[in-house]
Measured scan of single mutants.
Amino acid sequence: MKVMIRKTATGHSAYVAKKDLEELIVEMENPALWGGKVTLANGWQLELPAMAADTPLPITVEARKL
């Protein structure tokens, strides 16, 4: 699914347009965010693609819901 990742004042957030859902990312498998699992505030887990740590945000990526 397409997910937009952006930086907020409190960390990172994910927006899933198909579900009209925006949630804070509360847990990251990798400190650089990319190439691992993230957990959203509502409990969803997404697998993000591997990208460079300095990838500019906001960005829309293809993520997989676990």
Rank of each mutant, 00 (worst) to 15 (best):
K37M: 13
V16D: 09
L40M: 05
G11P: 00
I25G: 00
L48T: 01
L57K: 02
M1Y: 11
Q45G: 03
A52Q: 08
N30S: 09
P49S: 05
E29K: 04
A53R: 09
W44G: 01
V26T: 09
L21F: 13
E62P: 07
M1C: 15
T10F: 14
T39C: 08
A14T: 04
P56V: 11
K37E: 06
S13W: 15
L57V: 04
W34A: 02
H12P: 07
P56K: 12
Y15K: 09
T8S: 09
H12S: 03
L33A: 02
W34V: 05
L66T: 10
G43V: 01
G36V: 06
A41I: 04
K2N: 10
K19W: 15
L33Y: 03
L48D: 01
A9R: 10
A14H: 05
A63N: 01
R64S: 08
R6M: 12
I25T: 00
P58M: 05
Y15R: 10
H12E: 03
V26L: 08
L40R: 00
M51R: 04
K2I: 15
A63M: 06
V16E: 03
A52E: 10
T10Q: 13
W34D: 02
V3P: 01
L33N: 05
Y15G: 05
E23S: 15
I5S: 00
K65A: 12
V61Q: 01
M4N: 09
V38Y: 02
K37H: 09
A41R: 07
A52H: 12
E62I: 15
R6A: 10
R64W: 11
D20Q: 12
G11W: 02
V38M: 01
Q45P: 00
K2M: 14
K65Y: 15
A41S: 10
I25K: 00
M28G: 03
N30M: 10
G35P: 05
V61I: 11
E23W: 15
M28V: 09
P56E: 12
E23P: 00
W44A: 03
S13K: 09
E22T: 12
Y15S: 09
L40H: 01
A32W: 15
A32G: 14
T10N: 13
M4E: 15
V38K: 00
A17L: 15
L21H: 08
S13A: 12
M1W: 13
Q45Y: 08
M28I: 08
K19L: 15
E22A: 08
E47V: 13
I59M: 09
E29D: 10
E22S: 09
G11L: 06
